[in-house]
């Protein structure tokens, strides 16, 4: 059983690292202009960082329940592929525009997810993209990223 150890020290270390980074970050703030009354800009964030340190220390001392296989199943290759697809959505949006990226994403992740035939996925992707376009662009007139391809077609 890989997961049968106390996960708390690791979590506490991560929390402490974030608090340390934030605390260090406060030293790079611009100086508060002369002659302003009240608390400065750094006091409150530093207080919160100190609080986080204290809590992290408490957490490290506490025995935690190791997460069971049911609560946190191992991340398999397909899951990593889906995570990657989510990350790639942004560059895809830059290139193909949001209306190109959406159907690609829907079909790609749907295929990895499995259980649904490709034909259904493609039909669903087309239908959903059209519906979203209709609602957001035609009805509510939101400007959504059109990407380089969109720009090339004059949008």
């Amino acid at each position: 059983m890989r997961a049968a150890r106390n996960p708390n020290p690791a979590i506490a270390a991560a929390v402490a690292a974030v608090a340390a980074a934030a605390f260090a970050g406060t030293f790079w703030f611009d100086a508060v202009p002369e002659g302003l009354p009240g608390l400065g800009a750094v006091d409150f964030p530093r207080l919160v960082c100190v609080l986080l340190f204290g809590l992290a220390a408490l957490l490290a001392l506490k025995q935690g329940n190791p997460s069971s296989e049911e609560e946190a199943p191992r991340i398999d290759r397909g899951a990593w592929l889906i995570f990657g697809a989510c990350l790639l959505f942004l560059p895809a949006m830059e290139i193909a525009g949001i209306w190109g990226a959406i159907p690609l994403f829907l079909v790609f992740t749907g295929t990895i997810w499995g259980e649904v035939p490709l034909r259904t996925l493609v039909l669903n992707a087309i239908g959903l993209t059209a519906a979203l376009w209709l609602v957001f662009v035609r009805v509510f007139q939101l400007t959504l990223p059109s990407g380089w391809l969109g720009a090339a077609f004059g949008y």
């Binding site: 992740t109 749907g110 295929t111 259904t120 959903l128 979203l132 939101l142 959504l144």
Partner: peptide, 23 residues
């Protein structure tokens, strides 16, 4: 709805949802 259709669609809606208000 099968998860293979539902969750990717949720993600797509989330993108629009985050982008929309402030573009």
């Amino acid at each position: 709805i099968p998860p293979a259709i539902l969750w990717p669609a949720v993600f797509v809606l989330s993108i629009i949802g985050a982008y929309g208000p402030n573009q």
